[in-house]
Design a protein around this nucleic acid. Structure first.
Lengths: 348, 348
DNA sequence: AAAATTTCCGTGCACGGTAACGGAAAATCA
DNA sequence: TGATTTTCCGTTACCGTGCACGGAAATTTT
């Protein structure tokens, strides 16, 4: 059933041998132009697709996929992404696909560059890439294209036309959704945005678009609602605590709190000490610590994009493209924005 | 890489031929007890796993999976489930898995029984089953076990110990979650539950547990909030409209509305005619009509379990078990309860 | 004890594709 | 023109399993 057309059929119809047919299939030369075209024509007509099993059986090599991510500390967003590698379906593994993880320091462009050269040396059959640095990524992508190595973006992407697929979250919309969750659709008092202070010469703020979506929602639905910002240092718990304390001393009328990165858990100590009935606290990403906060009831809801799923789907898409020659149905796959509350988080 | 152990290795180590080894592997007799045990021992020791590619190549058959669902009218829940069949990964198909759909009338046990015999005649290698009738399902499952055909439940399940896996939604918790969505965590006025009238001798109400979860939440979080019920006939739009009309004439203070089955869209005509600021309307399942209502803003949120994903995951699990001999990591996979609002529905 | 069964097992081909090997034909060189 | 190199292609031996066929050995029948 399926594709009855075999390499032998083509050999017979072209009057050549399967050895020659195999040579044109794999473009390993030593074929006259005339024969080459004859074979290609018949392949086209019959819609020949090679039998994956036979190919794997004979060749045995399978394929190697490199996954390039920022190195994830324990409990971080990127560790979650990393765990997606282990979640690819058994059927993909059965197809002879192997994955190899390469990490880089998300704060050091030169570390990323270093990792890229390592990847190129490893010469994988495909690359899954979470890009953070524009310049360096453009260069890397050029190198990959030159070598004919297909690549898939996760989390964010470049404007490049040549990537095979992209799995990520629509940032602007996630901010919009977040605002809806925070306000519950009702008009409310003022809102506090807690942000992480970052050096200006560092990379651009990845949550910029998200914040924009949030602001737009508020302007449309609750124009009377005031929005304030404070900045904290993620490595200074005490400072964070004090920042919140002094802000709320000055603005006791502010009720709801939101953060646009995955660090909402940093607020837990202060929140736990200052419970307010009706306060809504919304953050992003299902990190273990965030989920714990959700369960405690300190955080109202989280908006999750499941980076692990992004990675595993990316690997699967890449594998299907390489091994089966099937392009992904859609190039840009914006993934679910999951709304997590304490009542459904157990099932994610 | 992987399993270097082949059938030839075993043949050599046992001093037998691969023909004999193959015979014990497939239990097709004609092997002396002594040889049988010798082979089994070596297989055990070396942890032999057959090469899927070679097997598929030689045998060619692949495997046949029967999917048994209630017949889904256009736009219905079960049609959504049906669509999951088309969504199994290309890699699973590449493994030589073919699926065949069998449907039955969800209101007629005898129709289910009829379908079951058809399935048994087709003698598939595995069965995905959405069971509605307890008695008949128990019998069917016994037949399957007798024939050694593995089966996976979706949507709901029997207490049977022998199913391979189950993909479904935790009903009680979904009701709990629903109540949280409806109230938004705030204390609110009274709530209306719209239910579908059904004959008592018909099957039991599949949403009973869900309702129980809802009620429990309300008792715990908003004991002062009154909950009323009305009943409608899904096939009588006019009657539905009038029922809502007369209820709300008598109880204008009731604001929020909930339905526990997938038919919240039946209320759209009335809701569209009677917009109330701050009213929350929550229903279940991402049917096209429900999603349309969500987009219009008539329905506040939906709780979705994506029956299509349940079906495709079930097929994949079954395929992996049959073809690769890999049991699913967890027997009971309670699937996500997705909270859908107009702001994230586009990404589901 | 010879013949007829039955039980058990080895051999060999097929599945579709890969790739090394070697040789014929064509092109280039002397 | 003969020798040499290049270009091109057919042959062949696998890869690991499935399975049909036929035959040796063990068992039962005459």
């Amino acid at each position: 059933m399926e594709n009855k057309v075999t390499i032998n059929d083509i050999a017979r119809l072209t009057g050549l041998s399967k050895g020659t047919v195999d040579r044109v299939l794999h473009k390993r030369g030593e074929v006259s132009k005339k024969s080459y075209e004859k074979v290609m024509k018949v392949i086209e007509e019959l819609g020949y697709k090679p039998n994956v099993f036979a190919s794997l059986l004979a060749g045995g090599k399978g394929c190697q996929i490199a996954v390039v991510l920022p190195s994830g500390e324990k409990g971080s967003y990127w560790e979650l992404a990393e765990s997606g590698i282990a979640k690819v379906g058994a059927d993909v593994e059965a197809l002879g696909v192997r994955t190899q993880l390469f990490t880089y320091d998300q704060y050091k462009p030169e570390s990323f560059h270093q990792t890229c050269t390592e990847v190129l040396e490893a010469a994988p059959d495909g690359v899954v890439l979470a890009p953070l640095f524009k310049e360096e990524t453009s260069q890397f992508v050029l190198d990959l294209e030159e070598k004919g190595i297909p690549y898939v973006f996760v989390d964010s992407r470049l404007e490049s036309e040549h990537y095979l697929a992209y799995f990520g979250m629509p940032m602007y919309q996630s901010g919009y959704l977040c605002a809806d969750q925070l306000t519950g659709g009702f008009a409310i008092g003022s809102v506090l945005i807690v942000r992480v202070r970052r050096d200006k010469d560092q990379q651009a703020d990845p949550t910029k678009n998200r914040r924009a979506g949030f602001i737009d929602y508020m302007l449309e639905h609750s124009p009377e609602c005031s929005v304030s910002n404070i900045f904290i240092d993620p490595n200074d718990p005490e400072g964070t605590y004090n920042a919140l304390d002094s802000y709320f001393k000055a603005h006791p009328e502010t009720r709801h709190i939101v953060m646009f990165n995955s660090r909402i858990h940093l607020l837990v100590p202060w929140l736990a000490d200052h419970p307010v009935k009706g306060r809504r606290v919304v953050g992003f990403d299902n990190l273990p610590e965030n989920i714990a906060a959700l369960r405690r009831g300190v955080v109202t809801s989280l908006i999750g994009q499941r980076p692990d799923v992004q990675v595993s789907r990316a690997i699967e898409a890449l594998a299907e493209a390489i091994v089966l020659g099937q392009l992904p149905p859609q190039k840009d796959a914006f993934m679910h924005m999951d709304i997590l509350t304490r009542y459904n988080v157990d099932y994610y």
